[in-house]
Each structure stands twice: as structure tokens, then as C-alpha cells.
């Protein structure tokens, strides 16, 4: 195994993140704080408790997920797209690195970044609302699993994209709507039955539901089903990455 190679990619990606800390860390934290101010304090005070949890606290797991998903995808997709765009990818391709090692470096770094961000948002949330974590081990598990899965998804997008516009397309047109419609700000039970069923097609529902369960012990969908769905999505992303490296799609001619 080329451990120095994996670490080189990992360190390089982390260094890039530190260089752009303002954009990569401060701006999501500010954005999330604004959500707390608006939804938690201003509007939330007029909304009754959901499943016995005050509204401000109810939205915390969803907001962490929102950031975790968007940042994982953004970090990983940009991480691999940028060397493709500038041409420096020649070095990774000519290095004695297996596809798994390249993925481990990029996805590992992207997941680390979004996990750190998720934890910082959690810490920020405690400044605004009172939070309880019933299942901390499961909370950490879902945090890590989701970060890895969506970093893989981002990696695939970064390989697929042929321009900066396409790079933004999926996060903007797919991830953000799915997250907002995935029960970040509400419980599925408030929706009409038809929309409850439609919502079950949204993979983010399972992520938010399972994550919220680890906090407050209540879930829209059973945790077991959520876990299976997350693992299925992980398997799909792994399959896509495997296919990319096997065929050389967009990497090698």
C-alpha cells in the first residue's frame, strides 16, 4: 500500500481547506447561525413542540445534515475536479497509487472536513438552543457514514463534471432541494399522506430521520430502514467510483 501517497493527497486537501477557511468554515457557520436566529428564535417560538422537542432544537440535526451533505459534496467534487481542470491530475495518474488509494485520500479529506464542520455547527447550536443527544455513538456513526457516503458522491460528480457550471449543478439542483424537502425543518407527519409517501423516495429523509433519532430518540422512518438506505446509497457511490476507475471514464483516454 502506498501510505505516503494517500497521506500526501489527504494533507494537500486539508491544506487547501485551511487556506480557504473563511469560505469553507466561517460562512456555513454564519449561515447556520442565521437559521437558528430566524427559525429557532423568531419563528420557532411560535411553533409548537414536535414529538416533544422544542422547534429550535428539532431542526439542529437537520441543519447539521444539510451542511454535512452540501459540504461533503462540494469538498470532494472540487477536490478532484480542480486537478482535472488545471491538468495537474497527470501526477496522481502517473503515481504508483491504486484507485482505492486515490479515493481514500480525496474522500478521507473531504469527509474529515465536513465532520469537523458538522461538529462545529453542533457546538454553535448549543449557544442558541438546548440539545440532548440520546445515542452519541450512533450520532457519531451516522455523522461519519453520511460524510463518507456524500464525499464519495461528490467525488463522482467531480469526475463527471466538465465545467464549473456542472460542478455546481448537482449540489444546487439536487442536494439542496432534497435536503430542504427531506424533513430538515419539519416532521414528515405534518405532510398530507400523499406527500409523506413521495418523501420516502428522497434519500435525505432517511439520513435526517436517523440522525434526529440519535439525538431525540424519535424518527419519521425506522432507524433500521434508514441505516439500510444509507448503506445502499454508499454501495451505489462505491460502485460508481469503481466503474470510473475501471473504465478510466473522464480520467484516462
Amino acid at each position: 500500500m502506498n501510505l505516503p501517497g494517500i497521506l500526501a493527497i489527504y494533507r494537500y486537501e486539508m491544506a487547501r481547506w485551511v487556506r480557504t477557511l473563511l469560505q469553507s468554515l466561517v460562512s456555513p457557520v454564519i449561515a447556520t447561525s442565521l437559521y437558528f436566529v430566524v427559525f429557532g428564535a423568531a419563528i420557532g417560538s411560535r411553533i409548537s413542540e414536535i414529538d416533544g422537542v422544542p422547534y429550535g432544537a428539532f431542526i439542529v440535526p437537520g441543519l447539521i445534515m444539510l451542511n454535512l451533505l452540501t459540504q461533503s459534496v462540494a469538498n470532494a467534487s472540487f477536490g478532484i475536479y480542480f486537478p482535472r481542470f488545471t491538468g495537474t491530475i497527470y501526477e496522481q495518474l502517473s503515481a504508483p497509487l491504486s484507485p482505492i488509494e486515490i479515493v481514500a485520500g480525496y474522500v478521507g479529506a473531504a469527509a474529515t472536513k465536513s465532520i469537523i464542520l458538522g461538529l462545529i455547527i453542533l457546538a454553535t447550536a448549543t449557544l442558541f438552543v438546548q440539545i440532548r443527544i440520546d445515542h452519541p455513538v450512533w450520532m457519531a456513526f451516522f455523522l461519519v457514514l453520511t460524510a463518507i457516503t456524500f464525499s464519495l458522491f461528490g467525488f463522482v460528480i467531480g469526475l463527471w463534471a466538465e465545467g464549473f457550471e456542472q460542478l455546481q449543478l448537482v449540489p444546487l439542483l439536487v442536494i439542496t432541494p432534497l435536503t430542504f424537502l427531506g424533513g430538515t425543518f419539519y416532521s414528515l407527519s405534518v405532510l398530507p399522506p400523499l406527500w409523506q409517501t413521495v418523501s420516502l423516495l428522497n434519500p435525505v429523509v432517511y439520513l435526517v430521520s436517523a440522525f434526529r433519532w440519535s439525538f431525540y430518540g424519535t424518527a419519521d422512518v425506522s432507524v433500521e430502514v434508514s441505516l439500510v438506505m444509507i448503506l445502499v446509497f454508499l454501495a451505489l457511490c462505491l460502485g460508481a467510483v469503481w466503474w470510473v476507475f475501471k473504465t478510466g471514464y473522464r480520467l484516462k483516454s
Binding site: 505516503p4 501517497g5 494537500y12 501526477e91
Partner: peptide, 14 residues
């Protein structure tokens, strides 16, 4: 940084 990075990519410790 970039030269050290290349060394790592090719499997050599710093």
C-alpha cells in the same frame, strides 16, 4: 509544499 507533495504521491516518506 508542491515538491514535497510529489515525493509523497510516489510513495516516499518525507
Amino acid at each position: 509544499a508542491t515538491v514535497s507533495h510529489s515525493r509523497g504521491l510516489f510513495g516516499k516518506w518525507p
